[in-house]
Amino acid sequence: MSDHPAVFGNFAIDDLVFADGSTRWGVPGGTAAYAALGAALWTGGATAVAPLGGDYPQSLLTRVDCSRCRIIPHTMRNWGLYEDDGTRHFVSRNRDRDWSGFCPTSEDAATGTQSTAHLAAMPLLRTQSLIAHLRQQGASTLSLDVDNHDLQQDGSSAQAHIDLIRLVDLYLPSQQDVARLLPGLPPTVALRRLRDYAPNTSLIAIKMGEAGVLAHVAGSDDCIRLPSVARAVVDTTGAGDAFCGGALAAYAEGLGPLDAIVQGSVSAALCVEGWGWEGLLQVSEDVKRERSADARSRVAKTTF
């Protein structure tokens, strides 16, 4: 099996419109890129498993192994719209609206094996298929981010999403995703509801942007809250995916759920402190140790 975590997701080239009216055009990104770099920050490398367009600047993805990426004619193109309250809306261009064509398949998963893998946001049926395939291959640790498009279009899919939570080891949704799944519930109440749905999932962590992360470890009497540890905010693109990669990396290294929360938070912080993914590159061991210690000192626990 691969020594490094594998990330199943997509690559994209985005045209971004920020809340202050500023724009950035033709920015390489995608869930696979940010999650893999967020993991590689801690493990020294990560494997991306995602369709890869020939127009994507693959050479910029240092420490990411793209050898299992299936080459496709072009990269998915999106509009990314950012709101003042931190919410984001990504809309694919017309020709790329069926984004399942830019997500990995079970055939892509069969190109290798891995003990730890992250499934980034994808269409529901694709996620179900990949989880089943990866478990059959022997993957012992799976983390999951979710796509709220299905919930937005058809509320009846909520139960299918809940069923997915029970099949993975780390469930790492954004607050925006949770609000779609469990509308009207405050984050702490939503976290308890998610734990009721999936009592055996090792870690459930809700990513809340500048408010940090709210998490619960299976069997614990405590709720864990860690505020954002970002020291500046330049660009929030990819921060949630970077968190997922950093969190999975802790499990890949044999560490525990608190380490996952800390590493995920540091990966997210370093991501938002630069444009695109530049903050995740060339980070020294001393910086990682200092940032991890700072994050750990900010962890607060309350009765769950």
Rank of each mutant, 00 (worst) to 15 (best):
T141S: 01
L142E: 09
L142Y: 06
L142M: 08
L142Q: 06
L142G: 08
L142T: 15
S143G: 09
S143E: 00
S143M: 00
L144W: 07
D145E: 05
D145V: 01
D145P: 03
D145W: 04
D145C: 02
V146E: 11
D147M: 11
D147T: 10
N148F: 15
H149T: 12
D150A: 05
L151F: 05
L151Y: 04
L151V: 10
Q152T: 10
Q152W: 06
Q152L: 15
Q153D: 13
Q153T: 12
Q153A: 13
Q153L: 10
D154G: 12
G155H: 07
G155F: 01
G155C: 04
G155K: 01
G155P: 03
S156I: 01
S156H: 04
S156A: 10
S156G: 00
S156Y: 02
S157I: 12
S157H: 09
S157C: 12
A158P: 06
A158W: 02
Q159L: 12
Q159R: 02
Q159A: 13
A160P: 00
A160D: 03
H161E: 09
I162N: 08
I162M: 14
I162S: 08
D163I: 12
D163A: 14
L164C: 02
L164W: 05
L164R: 02
L164P: 08
I165G: 00
I165P: 00
I165C: 05
R166Q: 03
R166H: 14
L167K: 08
L167A: 07
L167D: 03
L167P: 00
L167R: 13
L167F: 03
V168Q: 02
V168K: 08
V168L: 00
D169L: 14
L170G: 04
L170P: 01
L170H: 10
L170S: 05
Y171V: 13
Y171H: 06
L172K: 04
P173M: 03
P173S: 14
P173F: 13
P173T: 04
S174E: 04
Q175P: 00
Q175E: 13
Q175T: 03
Q175K: 03
Q175N: 09
Q176V: 14
Q176W: 11
Q176A: 11
Q176Y: 08
Q176M: 15
Q176D: 13
D177E: 10
D177W: 04
V178Q: 12
A179S: 15
R180W: 12
R180L: 11
R180G: 14
R180I: 12
R180E: 14
L181D: 06
L181K: 09
L181I: 09
L182K: 07
P183D: 09
P183A: 05
P183Q: 04
G184Y: 04
